[in-house]
């Protein structure tokens, strides 16, 4: 070995390398740093053996422990569902859905489960608080087209409205104007007449012209006084709530073009327990009958 050279100023050994007369000192790495470095090296070898590490041609080395984040997530989800299972099952085993609201614990469970399901699936159309929008019924009020009891709400959730499901709630509000059944002036008279059900003023002439038309085309579903029929899904025309707007022009548009909003069927996408929890939640939003 070459003779060690000690730098005079610092008293430290040099590496023997010199550039432009400047010599490099051979200061050793700090000991604590070296110790941590070697611990890391040893740890990495252990890690390679235990955990998924090396890529291969057809897959990867899975590690001795067989660790997999995907499996962990699946296990965690399964564990959560197993934990929920008992209460979820109770949601279906109660004699009627109304019994859920009599059991404070079960009610709390259903409301929490329902709130998260509502946020994921329903809020897009019906609004985060169930406030609805034009064409999308508000779920917080007490006006229900297809019925607001727990059982009615659950049925609507299961099969939807005009969803294409064989058991879907189904009816037709025809496009009386577009189909040429009614003329423009007849539609104007009818709109004025329909608005008079909820206390709006209307000219007596218009009413007298519209009444026979109403008797012919509307009364079978909406009733003589426009109170509607939940069994048929015919909206109440005599209250303060209008799904598509209550101005004269809105009502006229409904008569001219017809209406046919779609609510998807959720059975098959959600479990029956989930649909029950969701029905309890929607019922609790305020309008439940």
């Amino acid at each position: 070995m070459a003779e060690r050279e000690i730098d005079e100023t610092s008293g430290v050994e040099t590496t023997g390398h010199a550039w432009d007369g400047i010599k490099e000192l051979n200061n050793p790495l700090p000991r604590w740093w070296l110790i941590i470095f070697w611990i890391c090296v040893v740890w990495s070898v252990i890690y390679w053996v235990l955990m998924p590490s090396w890529p291969g041609l057809t897959g990867h080395f899975a590690g001795v422990r067989g660790h997999s984040e995907r499996k962990n997530v699946a296990a965690a989800v399964a564990a959560l569902e197993a934990e929920r299972q008992e209460r979820m099952a109770r949601l279906l085993s109660v004699e009627s859905i109304d019994a859920v609201e009599q059991d404070p614990q079960l009610l709390e469970f259903a409301l929490n489960a329902g709130a998260s399901l509502f946020g994921d699936n329903c809020a897009t159309c019906h609004g985060a608080g169930g406030q609805g929008a034009k064409g999308y019924p508000a779920l917080v009020d007490d006006d229900w087209i297809w019925g607001g009891s727990l059982a009615d709400i659950r049925r609507t959730l299961q099969f939807g409205v005009r969803s294409g499901h064989p058991e879907a709630r189904l009816n037709v509000m025809q496009a009386y104007g577009d189909l040429g059944v009614l003329s423009g002036s007849e539609i104007g008279d009818l709109a004025e007449y329909v608005r008079s059900f909820s206390g709006n003023s209307a000219s007596p002439e218009a009413i007298s012209r519209a009444r026979p038309l109403y008797e012919t085309h509307c009364v079978s579903c909406h009733g003589a006084e426009g109170r509607g029929d939940q069994a048929l899904g015919a909206p109440n025309l005599s209250d303060a709530i209008w799904l598509y707007g209550g101005e004269r022009a809105d009502v006229a548009q409904t008569l001219r073009d017809g209406r046919g909003g779609v609510m998807p069927a959720w059975t098959g996408r959600m479990s029956e327990e989930q649909i029950t929890a969701l029905a309890v939640y929607v019922h609790s939003l305020g309008g439940g009958e």
Binding site: Q131, D141, D143, D239, A240, G286
Partner: peptide, 8 residues
């Protein structure tokens, strides 16, 4: 959401 609800 909503701040108030008008009932039927």
């Amino acid at each position: 959401t909503p701040p108030f609800v008008r009932l039927s």
